[in-house]
């Protein structure tokens, strides 16, 4: 990714402990870097916190980003940190408005890398229509971190027509997936040490707020639940829903979109795409009566061409997710005990 703004002149080309001391170096980093790039009316006050009015029902969410590698096809830790929290709020039916931004920087992080990440944060904020209104920067000694960790906390108003709640789910509801599975996780895996294959797969990191708000505008309380299948993937989210709702979930493998190259990479790596992470995808549990119309709207979205009704909620087999395989057999899709581990052969 090209730097959209030139890097400001700073005295050091790497982050050092002084940048987190609260002294001159901190000011220099913030003034020349963070504030100049992300500035807005609220942030520019440089107060200890942000003061603003919000009316209506409010949603709030926080997440911390520790991804390695920091840079990957389709994004970096910066836009991930914005999109992730914007999306968590979207899953509450809320339009994210203001975000906090906390950095834990490791001594030795290259200033050019930090600047590229900041630029991505700025770009992601612009696309999602959110502002950074307060933040924090800490620096830890070399070896005490992994270059950069980012925390974002977001706040936004809930769409007036939204009624997203686990208690709304009922037998017969349809399950819609907004796009193809496993892009983000496979992108990250292909960068990690030990993998010697090249792919053109890129992360699906993107904000979901606009499409979700559009759906809520049109379909309101026919949307019973929204979840984004990030860590642990689709299988984990569906299992959580089945367990919390005390209902069964039946899905069909043939209806679950996975792109050919992603599927091939999963096969080669011995991974099941159902458990691989996504960053720009959501699952909607919707009233059966509205499912086809919701799908039609979703398919009009730039990233929704592969959206699909992948299954339905059932009264049978409560707390279990059962998938009909492509060849007509059935299997339980369970929770994983830990991280998905590649098989030997």
């Amino acid at each position: 990714m090209l730097l959209s703004c030139p890097i400001p002149k700073l005295d050091f080309d790497t982050i050092n402990l002084g940048h987190g001391s609260g002294g001159t170096l901190t000011s220099q980093l913030l003034d020349a870097g963070v504030f100049s790039l992300l500035g807005n009316e609220l942030l520019d006050k440089k107060h200890d916190g942000a003061i603003f009015n919000l009316t209506g029902k409010i949603a709030m969410s926080t997440d911390t980003y520790v991804v390695s590698p920091l840079f990957f096809e389709g994004g970096n830790i910066g836009d991930l940190a914005i999109n992730g929290t914007v999306n968590d709020l979207a899953m509450c039916g809320a339009a994210a408005k203001y975000l906090t931004l906390g950095f834990v920087l490791e001594e030795g992080l290259k200033m050019t890398e930090f600047w590229e990440i900041l630029n991505s944060i700025k770009a992601a904020c612009d696309v999602a229509g959110v502002s950074i209104v307060t933040g924090d920067t800490k620096v830890v000694e070399k070896g005490k971190g992994d270059k950069i960790f980012i925390n974002t906390t977001g706040i936004g108003t809930v769409h007036p027509k939204a009624n997203i709640d686990m208690v709304n789910i009922k037998s017969g509801d349809k399950i819609i997936l907004s796009g193809p599975l496993a892009r983000h996780g496979i992108t990250i895996m292909s960068h990690r040490q030990g993998l010697q294959f090249e792919t053109t797969i890129s992360s699906d990191s993107r904000p979901l707020n606009q499409i979700v708000l559009k759906l809520l505008d049109q379909f309101g309380d026919n949307i019973h639940l929204l979840r984004d299948p990030t860590r642990g993937g689709l299988a984990t989210v569906l299992n959580e829903i089945a367990a919390d709702a005390k209902l069964g979930i039946a899905i069909a493998q043939k209806d679950i979109p996975v792109e050919e190259d992603v599927y091939g990479a999963c096969e080669m790596l011995g991974l099941d795409p159902l458990y691989v992470a996504n960053e720009g995808l959501f699952v909607a549990i919707v009233d059966a009566s509205a499912a086809d119309d919701i799908l039609a709207v979703l398919k009009q979205w730039n990233y929704g061409q592969m959206a699909s009704i992948i299954g339905e909620v059932k009264a049978d087999h409560p707390r279990q997710v059962i998938m009909k395989s492509n060849i007509g057999g059935h299997r339980v899709v369970n929770m994983l005990a830990g991280e998905q581990l590649p098989r030997i052969c």
Binding site: D316, H317, Q320, I322, N334, G338, I344
Partner: peptide, 28 residues
């Protein structure tokens, strides 16, 4: 999550395979 023996660990192990995919045989 807490295997007594190895077949409950690997997805190729018969125990883990049954645990992950096959519990609900009778329910389907």
């Amino acid at each position: 999550a807490q295997p007594l023996g190895a077949p409950m660990v690997s997805s190729e192990g018969a125990c883990a395979a049954y645990y992950h995919f096959n519990l609900a045989t009778e329910l389907v």
